[in-house]
């Protein structure tokens, strides 16, 4: 089960509201490569993962992603505090505001609501771990792009932290593949699916 800790993994303290930035960063809350998808992907893949270390990696990274989801939600919340009437009419934010006001809703910046279609649970350890490596790369690029689009230092401190976590997670998933390989047929790792054949 999960127990809530009443603290953020990394502090989010954003002095200036900025609805334009909120309407971009929302993609890491509910977009195709965002933190909601990341946590659901890893925490769901666990169930068919046959090896102890790999159950651990998926559980621990998936849990950390829930903490990142909370951090991204905190960024959106603080960027949209006490908006003035003119700020509400900011280009790019109006379309979000009309449906969600200053609520935090899992959607891509494009307006496409969060979809399980953007995650994969194949039920084959190699396929799932390689999906996870790609997912970390895509999230890393989204954070790169946010850094290109944002000039708010309070926001960027948090984004740089989150981006670096993607790099570390990529490394751990890569090592997870090596651990998986050590359990499989040396000459042909695709001989069978260890999640259902043994």
């Amino acid at each position: 089960m999960f127990v809530y800790e009443k603290k953020l993994q990394f502090p989010v303290k954003i002095r200036n509201t900025n609805p334009r930035l909120a309407s971009i960063i929302i993609s890491q809350y509910g977009g195709p490569d965002g933190e909601l998808g990341a946590s659901m992907r890893y925490l769901s893949q666990r169930f068919s993962m046959p090896y102890a270390e790999l159950k651990g990696v998926l559980t621990d990274i998936g849990t950390e992603e829930l903490g990142h989801l909370e951090m991204v939600g905190s960024i959106i919340h603080q960027l949209t505090r006490k908006l003035s009437d003119s700020q509400i009419k900011t280009a790019g934010f109006e379309q979000y505001f009309v449906d969600h006001t200053a609520g935090v809703y899992p959607t891509a910046a494009s307006g496409f609501p969060w979809s399980a279609g953007s995650i994969g649970v194949k039920g084959d350890p190699m396929a799932d771990l390689v999906e996870d490596m790609a997912a970390e790369q895509k999230a890393r690029v989204t954070y790169d792009n946010i850094l290109r689009l944002s000039d708010d230092p309070d926001v960027n401190e948090v984004i740089k932290f989150l981006r670096e976590r993607e790099v570390v997670h990529f490394q751990r998933f890569g090592e997870a593949v090596e651990i998986l390989r050590s359990r499989l047929n040396e000459k042909n790792v695709y001989f069978m699916n260890p999640a259902i054949d043994s």
């Binding site: 790169d144 401190e157 740089k160 932290f161 981006r163 490394q171």
Partner: peptide, 24 residues
């Protein structure tokens, strides 16, 4: 470690030299 986003210098690979300099 927390401001860099990793405990490991070997994995500390920032984008365009953008790194958090000041500690909390």
């Amino acid at each position: 470690g927390i401001v860099r986003g990793t405990m490991y210098p070997g994995l500390d690979l920032p984008f365009m030299g953008m790194v958090n300099q000041s500690e909390l």
